[in-house]
Amino acid sequence: MSHPLANSYMEGSCFPTFLTLFFQQKMILFPNAKINLGLNVLYKRPDGFHALQSCFYPVGWADVLEITEAESYKFTSTGIEIPGDPSNNLCTKAYDLLKKDFDIPAVHIHLHKIVPIGAGLGGGSADGAFTLKGLNDLFGLGLSIKKLQTYAEQLGSDCPFFIENKPVWVTGRGEVFEPVELDLSGKYIVLANPGIHISTAEAYGAITPQEPTRNTKKELEGDIAHWKAFVKNDFEEPIAKKYVAIQNLKEYMYQKGAVYASMTGSGSTVFGIFDEKPLGLSFEKEIMTWEGTL
């Protein structure tokens, strides 16, 4: 029996196009963001990177990534405008990395950008890592998690996290992972981005790297009620002093009942973790928000 959609296209000139689409290999993925639970900047390493400590935790705010086999490589995007040369996009770089080592076909990568850019959420890193995973699955490359993480490390420090995409304690420059005994399942999270772009140079220029006075990993594995006092993001205080909107968002999260609130990464997104969905949340229209269950 023929497919009913095929029958509808046979009557018109679009049928050849439909056949092409129907038999093309295609994959749709949803690269999600992450938050930092605590972020300690210890010192500047000889290689120019900073030694960090943090917990990376995945959240549901996500882009939409479509990979389709094509006659020639193409990258396109919709949604939030992505600055810079498309050839420098991490999705393209991920494709180029695998293309060097494997005889994979050309693809058309289309990214619908939803996660704010430069917001401390790792959205671009997720896009690159999910491209690696998508190409691996689409073309049956058989790459292990470890091998995919090795490729992802070449894209950027945060990228390897998104290969397994589960909570980890992070050290090194953000690429060394350890298990963390932390499960926030059932908690409710609200993320708010005020649209303030904070460059890496500005963020690091505002802090003095130092060893933390408390064991952040141990605090995170303890009672969340104590996080407010002991789990800190080293970037938050100096950045919030300069950009009052960040401090206001954090205070608002606590006013609405958050058990813990913080800026994530080098900013400017602020998140609040709640025991249950808060009532009566209201944000100014220029603030991008996402909320959901962890």
Rank of each mutant, 00 (worst) to 15 (best):
V115Q: 03
F102R: 12
S87W: 10
L111C: 02
E66H: 13
H112D: 07
L90S: 03
V107K: 00
F56H: 05
D103E: 14
T68F: 07
I67L: 12
S72W: 02
I114P: 02
V107T: 01
A106C: 12
G118L: 08
E81N: 13
I117K: 12
D85F: 11
D85H: 09
F56C: 08
F102V: 10
S77H: 15
C55H: 08
P116C: 09
Y95F: 15
K100F: 05
E81H: 14
Y73C: 03
P105T: 09
T68N: 03
G79R: 13
V115D: 00
Y57A: 11
L90K: 04
A94S: 11
T92H: 10
E71T: 13
Q53G: 01
L52D: 01
D63P: 03
G118E: 00
K113N: 06
K93F: 06
A94P: 01
D85C: 05
P83Q: 11
H50L: 14
S77R: 10
D63H: 10
K74M: 07
V59A: 02
K113Q: 03
I114Q: 06
H110G: 06
T78C: 02
T68P: 00
Q53S: 12
I80N: 02
K93D: 00
D101V: 14
V107H: 00
A62R: 15
H112W: 02
K99F: 03
P116V: 09
S87D: 11
I117Q: 04
I109Q: 00
L111H: 05
P116M: 07
F75H: 10
G118K: 01
L97W: 10
F102P: 02
K93M: 01
S77Q: 11
G79L: 12
D103N: 14
W61S: 13
G79I: 15
K93V: 05
Q53T: 10
F102Q: 06
D96H: 11
S77A: 14
D96L: 15
A106R: 08
